[in-house]
Design a protein around this nucleic acid. Sequence first.
DNA 1: TGGGCTTGCGCC
DNA 2: AAAGGGCGCAAGCCCA
Length: 563
Amino acid sequence: MRLVVTAGPGPRWRSRPVDDAGTPTAAPVTTGAFPGAEAPAGAAGAVRVVWADTAAAYPACRAAGVRVGRCHDVTLAEGLLLGHEGRWGRPRSPAAAWARLTGGAEPADPVAAVPGTPADDGQDSLFDAGPRAAAPLPPGVDALDVLVAVHADQQARIADARAVSPGFGLLVAAESASALVAVELTEAGLPWRADVHDALLLDALGPRPRHGGRPARMQALAEELAVLLDAPGLNPDSQPDLLRALRRGGVPVTSTRRGELARVEHPAIEPLSRYRELGRLFTANGWAWREQWVRGGRFRPEYVPGGVVSGRWSSRGGGALQIPRAVRGAVVAPPGHLLVVADAGQLEPRVLAAMSGDAGMIAATRQGDLYAALAAEALGRPDARAEAKVGLLSAMYGGGAGSASLAALRRRFPAALGLLEDAARAGEEGRSVRSVLGRTSPPSPDGPDGPDGPDGPDAEAAGSRSRAYGRFTRNFVVQASAADWAAVLLVGLRARLHDLGDGARLVFFQHDEVVVETAEPLAAQVVAAIADAGAEATRLVLGDTGVHVPLAATAVRSYADKP
DNA sequence: TGGGCTTGCGCC
DNA sequence: AAAGGGCGCAAGCCCA
């Protein structure tokens, strides 16, 4: 059963049951308690909540102790549908969808407040921040009626989309459930030990500077650099100053990027590299970062499912998806608990193997290390793992078209490489591409044939843009399909952890990696749940291609102990 | 002073 | 010939 739900007015909910086509089966009702709470385990008739915006509505449910089992997020579904229908960029709120249905003016989507900026409400906890604003409906129009109508329309459009992309219904369900997971992840937070973090910082940087300024280790390196480059008072954080000093000192560089500096010989390069490394730790994940983002022993970023066009998540606040290895030691399970950490190794090439049906590459996925297998089979040298890896990654990222290993991979795995080249050609010609479940790439900036046609006055610049878009679509097919797999994994794992009771919960998710915090006695069951969820994701998303996606889960005390 | 831009780099 | 996909974030720079 589906239950269309809107909040308010006041601390009340309005709801109306509908069937799978979206047709109402009873009259609307108003209740004080949330009407879509998950039924007790074993009860018949699981409810799918249909609502406008999980990110806006679900935190209040959680605060009231309510868990939603399944949902249909009308805003996220609208975004997926618009993309699939080639109508990228239109506003995706229920109000906008309703305007398209009725011929009204589409309101623009509201912009979410960024935590920690002046637009934020300034409350201490991200989780307590008020819900984001909804796009306005015309006066006199009933929000529940709108939601019922838009949902019914979406169900019909999803049926149409499935004729092209059979997995599209799964994609909408997984995207909606991902939004539930995102709210629950923020609520749970990642355990963060301030004392361990302090010890790491002290060891690397020296004591915290009392009155601003650089930590001792960085200051010493800055002074050493000033001497080595004969540039008194040099600020290594100033790129123009640094570049001038390097060039004056006879270092022939045109930028100060690490990669370029690594190619030249100079006594200043090593201390500069060390200064940068420490500076990164200090500014991105130092004491100030912890004071801003860690509360009560937990790091609670805000997650944005589908925040990346490829369907990957993005995050707001504290760089949650870029926690460097150097500080992962501070992520420690509380007493009596463990962290079960799992990531899908080499997910993107495995997804590529399945999508292309390349028999050779599928067979290679059944060996433990895919890149080593590719090296043995395509290059004839099992020890050339690094070369095979770079070759395949550049095939998926659009780089280094001329490399010898790429040519060898193309000969040995023609279907897999052909899929990437087809995707790149589609992009260069201004066409969209789709993930395995049907997420669709945004249109080329120039559309088919570029802004002026193939021979227009800006043909050179348009050609460059078209090649760039080709690299994007080349990557999109694998990145977005890997995100499809990961979303289905996450949703299946959420359900399995719920079945284990209150002792285990997801606390982190990053592209192809999950962290579950669990009471120690449940750890073995969590490991099994992850393996089950991975196998299910592979079956549902990649079908019975025979592709193997390893998802090794390990129980550890600290995130840094992950093998 | 504030905002937008560039540079550099962490994660996948 | 151009030359590596997707992000978020901090600091410096530059100009209004």
